[in-house]
Design a protein around this nucleic acid. Structure first.
Lengths: 346, 346
DNA sequence: CACGTTTTCGAACACGCTTTCCTAAAATAA
DNA sequence: TTATTTTAGGAAAGCGTGTTCGAAAACGTG
């Protein structure tokens, strides 16, 4: 069933059918109703590719999740803690504007080519990149070519790239600051930090937040209290081992991700220390498991729903109305206090 | 950059460019190389909508997740335990065939129309439906209209619907049987069952599995040992309350989903009973949290990766080569023993 | 060299829709 | 009534690609 057949049945021209479908003004009510009736009767829906070819937007946006640890099944699922709510929230929001979402996982092996192709062949009108640290150069190039992109949790590219783009960041520094300050307010003085991958924006920003809170409290920044992980549970385990091996003064640990916090908790339990009685732990992300493990994890919550909706909203605006210059948005963080942190008793 | 321009640069006709792109045989190596060189140089990629309109498959499949509890944020995330790994696995697998995946969440409020439209307007060449119990009629109609569909974890439609389709089921009965038998082998005799939504295929099939194991062990089926939940954590909590209120003989509970098992555990802990010392619990699904809660949950694992890859593989086969008749596939289950179940001491 | 055969290539149509431009009819003004 | 303006709707071009079909070129063969 195509517009030609509909036109024949309604005894009008194909162009009239199109005008009815696309809400043109110069169609009489009588004609319009007649055409709509036939359309409904035969369940006609204009073919997407033809519309698209004729110049209509395809209302499709790509969500690209970079998962550098894709080889490992275990890690893949861990990444999903972030992906799943983001993707569903994005779909939800996109739906309001009748947009569809095409999701793609980019791993370290699979080349960026596939994503690029989706822009080049015009399958999508814009894209949202999450965790794209490893493909910064490629993303710059897409921006330079004029493709419409939103980048999540990355540094501001303002001065580094020519071309309009949109950034949506969580307030990493603020969140880490809140987490560390929480421990300080609970009376902790010997506070260690397991930081994430320093190549990642969130990694070093959270370290900055930790330092800010430490300095503000008049405490010294000890390099032996800072270890670098890579956001995974195992790296949290190893980091805790490193931190606690030759040190029995540490009473609080702020980990840059919940996964690392969970890994650290595993090690702490293994060596027979109690959480939170001996050591308090604070994570970051508020992934679902955080409230199910025992003790439940005090953490920093970032509203992924907020991030997703801001990302989608501004991208659609970019696509449909263009923007004058690059945009930079931030999403607030919130401290969620659970059982893994405890006021220190002197 | 379009094929016309490429043709001009390579001093050949447009059709020759197309033939090179689509690997036609009758092109001399010399011409082919010349064209490919220009294509690479200018980064030409044929426009998807035009190809599609000209008759090429768009290599796009839809994954439809039905989330009837979409209104509630909490439940939405619970559903995601299933969705996220499935979707990523599907993408992964689809990628091998250069297919893309478009995901759509169908909630009870959002009409099925949106999904239907994607078929009608030919945005997708096929679809995979998960948890689609509430839209069985609509799905039947799509099948009848000749659209290519895979349905996950639903009854065989063999006799109920005219039209080719593909079913991928986990062996629900087998899984539930294994779970119950595990408790029996551990010496339990008073075994209750929290079953899932009986409108759902997985709900009643798992009940059947439970009954089969009970009968096989020569034990009586007590109706007061069977309560109906709806797969959610809260319903597990309520069901446990109902079961244990006036009964202190129950020593084992098999819940039809991990979420319900977790809810039940919450209630059991609240009334001061110990798991697994007083009551053993077995869940179903092996969602990620199952191994993180304490005590960790004994459960039935279904390989979502297997389901997803079978679904994608057979759908692509259906799309590209058609199938002679409806297909029915099953995926095995596996008992994962953790801390929540314990051998009973007499 | 003449002929048949195979290989290579290009002109032209098709895909289904949007949109511009134009005409005919209707509405309004004179 | 006639002249002018407004409006409804149709004809046709165009979007970028795939594919068929026939012609031309290249190649063999006797």
């Amino acid at each position: 069933m195509n517009s030609k057949e509909i036109a024949k049945m309604a005894r009008v021209s194909r162009s009239t059918v199109s005008k009815v479908v696309n809400d043109y003004a110069n169609i009489s009510d009588k004609t319009r109703e007649k055409v709509i009736e036939i359309i409904k009767k035969y369940g006609y829906v204009p073919q997407a590719s033809a519309r698209n070819l004729a110049g209509k937007s395809n209302k499709m946006i790509g969500v690209f999740i970079t998962d550098v640890n894709h080889d490992s099944k275990e890690l893949r699922v861990i990444e999903s803690d972030y992906f799943s709510p983001f993707a569903t929230a994005a779909m939800d929001y996109a739906d309001k504007f009748e947009y569809n979402i095409l999701t793609l996982v980019i791993d370290k092996n699979r080349k960026f080519d596939k994503a690029r192709k989706l822009f080049y062949n015009k399958t999508i009108s814009g894209g949202i990149f999450i965790g794209a640290e490893n493909n910064v150069q490629e993303i710059f190039e897409l921006i330079r070519s004029g493709y419409k992109l939103v980048i999540i949790d990355q540094e501001r590219y303002k001065d580094r790239v020519v071309g309009k783009h949109i950034i949506v960041n969580s307030k990493n520094l603020e969140g880490a600051y809140k987490a560390t300050k929480h421990l300080i307010e609970y009376g902790h003085r010997e506070i260690a930090h397991i930081c994430g991958d320093m190549n990642k924006f969130s990694g070093f920003k959270r370290l900055e937040g930790y330092k800010k809170a430490i300095v503000e409290a008049g405490l010294p920044i000890r390099t032996e209290y800072i270890t670098e992980g890579d956001f995974t549970e195992d790296s949290g385990y190893e980091s805790a081992k490193k931190l606690l091996k030759n040190n029995n003064k540490i009473t609080g640990i702020f980990a840059s991700s919940d996964n690392m916090a969970i890994g650290a908790m595993r090690f702490i339990k293994e060596i027979g220390l109690r959480i939170p009685d001996d050591i308090s732990i604070v994570g970051y992300d508020d992934i679902k498991i955080a409230s199910y493990i025992s003790p439940s994890l005090t953490t920093i919550r970032v509203s992924i729903l907020d991030m997703a909706s801001i990302a989608v909203k501004s991208l659609i605006n970019f696509i449909e109305k263009d923007i004058k210059s690059s945009r930079y948005n931030t999403v607030s963080t919130e401290l969620v206090i659970r059982q893994s942190s405890k006021r220190i008793k002197e």
